[in-house]
Structure formats: C-alpha cells, structure tokens
Simulated assay, not measured.
Amino acid sequence: FLLADEAMLPVYDAAAYQRFKDSGAATADLLEAGLYTGAYRVDSLDSTAARLSAWPQYWGGPPPLSSVTVKFVPEASARIQAVQAGEADIALYPPTATALTLSGRSDAFYVTGDSTGPTFMLEFNQRSAPFDDPLVRRAVYAAIDYDELADDVMNGLYSPAIGLYADSRPWAEKTQTFDPAVTAALLDQAGFTRTGDGPRTRDNAPLTFDMLTYPQQPDSGALALAVQAQLARQGVGVTITQVPDITEAVEKPTGWQAAIRGNGFISFGGDYVTPLLNYVRTGGPDNVTGVSDPALDALIDQVAVTLDPAARDDLLRRIQTVVGDQGYLGYLGERKGAVVAGPAWRTYPVPIANLWVGPQTAPTG
C-alpha cells in the first residue's frame, strides 16, 4: 500500500537531489533544482497563488496545458463566483449545499467523484472535562443521527458514517449507531441528569461544550449546526466556533473541547496502518485528542506486522471495537469528492487524492 501512496513516497530525481545537496545551495532553491518528475514546474508561489508552467522534458510527453494557476481563495462563495464569471475553471472544496443552488445552471456545474471512506472526524479533547469521561464521549456519538446528516442535511450527497471505515471494507465494523436511549442511559450514569425537556446538568452545571469548525471545509459548519440541533434534543448544549487554522487549534493540548476535521482513516494508496499510528496510538503525530491506551497500542502494533488477510481483518475489527467502546474517535459522514467546474470542465474526473492537475488533465467541453 505504501508504495502506491504519493503522500508517503514522492517521486523525484535522486541523482539531481544528490547534486543539489552536494552544491550546498539553500533549501529554498529546491524548486529550481530540477528534482521533480511531474508534468508542470512551479514558477512562483506566494500567499495568493501558485503559478506553474508545462515542463517540456516531462517523460510522458508534452503536457496538455501550457500553464496552470492555482489561486488561494479562502471564501467558498468567491471561488464559485469566479467559475460562474469565467475567471476560473474549477473551484475546489465547495460546500455540499452548492449542488442545489447550481442545479439547472449552464455556467457552473457541481461535479462529484468517488469516496474511499468516512470524511469528517468528530474529535473530543480527552484531557479535560467533559470528554475525559468515556461515558460522555460515547453518549454524544450515540446522540447523532448519521442518516439525517447524510440524507437531509447533505441532501443525499453523503453516505451515513458507521465508524472508522466505509462498510465496503471487509474489516469494517459498525461502531456508530444513533440511539437516544443509549445517550440518556450513559449520561445518567455519568451523573448528568435531566428533568423533562430541560438541559442535562451535574451539580447544577449544564452539560455544554464548544465545537470548532474551519472555513477551508465549509461542510464542517453545516455539520456542526446539525449536530448542535441534534444534541439539543438530548439536553446537551453546543456552541460553535470557526477558527482560521483547525490544525493549529487542535494541536494545543488545552483551550479546545471538540472539533470537526476533514481527515480520512485510510490513505489514498489504501494504507490502513499509518492512520492508526497517527490518530489513535499513544504519541501519534496526529493524536491531538490525547488517546493513550496500552491495549489499543498493542493491537495496532500487531496489525502493522500482520500479513495474513484473515488475521489482519480480525485485528482491525478488534481495534474498531476498542475505539467505539471507549469513544476515542468517530465520524459524521462519508462525502464524495466534489468540485464546481465551468462548462469546458464539466466532465472533469474528480480525484480521490489532492492531485487536482495531472499529466492528462485537460478540458473536454
């Protein structure tokens, strides 16, 4: 799997890199060193755009586009308006709600691709209350109506999340189920009681938490609003805070409680080990929630060196069971990749990875 994953093994000219290293040149000069083997080379990069030109010596033949400009436009509506005005060919990361607003238009099209698994993590900071208690974590996951999120909130353009993986994976276990009765029982057990339709309280303090979203993935905001409404039905209060950099926010051990982030649990190349090591193993580089479970670590270490498919599947199922039973991590939905494309690009094949322009990318309209 790792050999097929461009995020793990970038391709470059090793001999050219050695010459560059031996020259003692500054790291900033790497872009001009002729190291890479892609169809386009970076001419300039700043906070507003990356500008690339076709590389005439590309091993696969002349690229179809003479140049590519990638503009960095934080506001999703501005990106889409640029496509509608003919100022851009493709807008990345459109809100799913855009699909309805573009229906019937001829200047921009909502184009979807395939999905490899659940998309948006709902993460809880387990270092502090209320999510230092697994009963509360499990209760919140059980209070979420995953079918409603996929079918109503996201207009059928999502599939409901069942856990860490898509149900098409042979090892997938359903560890997430909407069950208000379970939520009530778990919160009662945790000491958060409720009278009638009032808020859940413990020692006269309401059960509330803040949930982070971020503008680069507009669907995180729509999902947060829906989860806020669903949890309100169970007496749990949620505030929503949008932050400019979600990664920076959650990498801090304190100062946040919950976050919605767009991260899958299997790599683009099909690697199932690295996400486990990163997100839920003790000390993992992306283990921002503070999961630390020696029994889970042992299972992850074991699956990392297991080659037999049946034994691997069994270990992965056991890992999912531990994660679900402890409320370590959950997902809100499985989104198809999507872009908003202009008329000439309406048949653009949306990739599963963030490689938006490849050696065959060209308009067909």
Rank of each mutant, 00 (worst) to 15 (best):
L3E: 05
P10S: 15
Y12T: 10
A16S: 06
Y17N: 03
D22Y: 10
D22T: 13
A26E: 13
L35T: 13
G38W: 03
A50K: 05
R51E: 11
L52G: 00
P56R: 02
P56C: 01
Q57A: 10
P62G: 09
S67Y: 11
F72H: 12
V73D: 13
A82P: 14
V83C: 05
Q84L: 14
Q84M: 08
G86A: 09
D89P: 05
D89T: 10
L92N: 14
Y93K: 15
P95W: 10
T96P: 11
T96N: 14
A97K: 11
T98I: 10
L100H: 05
S103P: 14
R105D: 11
D107N: 06
D107G: 11
F109L: 00
F109H: 15
V111R: 00
T112Y: 05
S115F: 04
S115Q: 11
T116C: 03
G117A: 13
T119W: 05
T119L: 00
F120S: 08
L122V: 09
S128C: 04
A129K: 08
D132P: 15
V136T: 09
R138V: 04
R138N: 06
A142Q: 14
I144F: 11
I144W: 01
D151P: 07
N155C: 14
A161E: 00
L164H: 10
L164Q: 02
A166G: 03
A166Y: 12
P170F: 10
K174S: 07
F178W: 12
D179V: 15
A184D: 06
A185H: 15
L186T: 01
L187Q: 07
F192M: 02
F192V: 03
T193D: 09
T193P: 01
T193K: 09
R194S: 15
G196N: 13
G198N: 02
P199S: 15
P206H: 07
L207E: 00
T208K: 13
F209Q: 11
M211Q: 07
M211T: 12
P215C: 11
Q216H: 12
L225P: 15
V227W: 08
G235E: 04
G235I: 15
T241A: 08
Q242W: 04
A249M: 14
E251Q: 15
P253R: 06
Q257G: 11
A258N: 04
A258Y: 10
R261Y: 04
G264I: 01
F265A: 03
I266W: 04
S267C: 09
G270R: 01
N278F: 12
T282K: 10
G283W: 08
G283I: 09
V291S: 01
A298W: 13
L299Y: 03
D301R: 03
A304E: 08
A311M: 13
L316S: 15
V322T: 12
V322C: 06
V323K: 00
V323T: 01
G324P: 07
G324S: 00
Y328T: 04
G330L: 03
G333F: 00
E334Y: 08
V340Q: 01
A341R: 05
A341G: 14
W345E: 14
T347C: 12
I352L: 04
L355W: 14
Q360N: 06
T361R: 01
